[in-house]
Design a protein around this nucleic acid. Sequence first.
DNA 1: AGTTGGACCTGACTGC
DNA 2: TGCAGTCAGGTCCAAC
Length: 280
Amino acid sequence: MPELPEAETIARQLAKETPGRIVRGVVIRSPRAVRSHRSRAEFARLVRERRIAGVGRRGKAVLLFLNGRSPTTVVVRLGMSGRLRVCPSRSRLERHTRAIFSLSGGRQLRFIDPRQFGLLAARRGTEVESFPEFRNCGPEPLSREFTPGRLFRALARRSSRLGVALMDQRLVAGIGKIYADEICFRAGLSPTRPSNSLTEDDCRRLWNAVRQVLRSAIRFQGTSTGDIAYLDAYGEQGRFRERLMAYQRSGRPCRACGTAIRRERMTGGRGMHWCPRCQR
DNA sequence: AGTTGGACCTGACTGC
DNA sequence: TGCAGTCAGGTCCAAC
């Protein structure tokens, strides 16, 4: 599932491949991919014949900055199964290709998304924080804005379980199921703990774990797992999967102490994985 | 306002 | 083999 490390990996790859190229044409093969626009034509009009000036990321979203008379930003939300791929124009179209950007230089940027939870949105300007997609977006976990104190105060206000709170994008941006499990493991905290039961000391460990886990996952270019495994802009798998300590390891021995990893469904129907011995 | 559960979507898997 | 049911999960929305 694309979370912050996967989006960051794709954004860095696109930053090498796309700047300077001009979007010559846009084909939206699934209208649902641009459902926040009135029509496919409206989206295409905002994007066509503009030069890609840069690439960024906010939370789990990849951002394409386009130059032109009025600068435009394309927000790419990958959802649960979305991928962005750069390839030669003549290469075979993959199944579930939802949108194709034809770029100058004989390349295409393709948006592939089996589950169709992903979304492309073209927004005027580059003031990302003002876009509706980011209205409820909390601080970037690897920025200075995100501090142990801020994390403590936010968790102290909540009664929901820690594993659920970490995935709330208003608390901190970019964390989903995989990294919520891994962060809790690294912090030695059970994801079933009520958020407001954490001490300041717990929160400092949690804050460290957030940053260590995300940095490490970025270094290994994300996690590929499950029936619709994440692939990067070159179609390669992420290598963080081999380093997972909790996620999707239920019943298997904890890599630290050998105790069987537990799994339990939480509110929202999502299962959380944790070691009952290492995590309290 | 915070919290929860359902809906969206489709491929893989399970059970009868 | 076939078909219904379940699961996965990011995000939004309605209901408490």
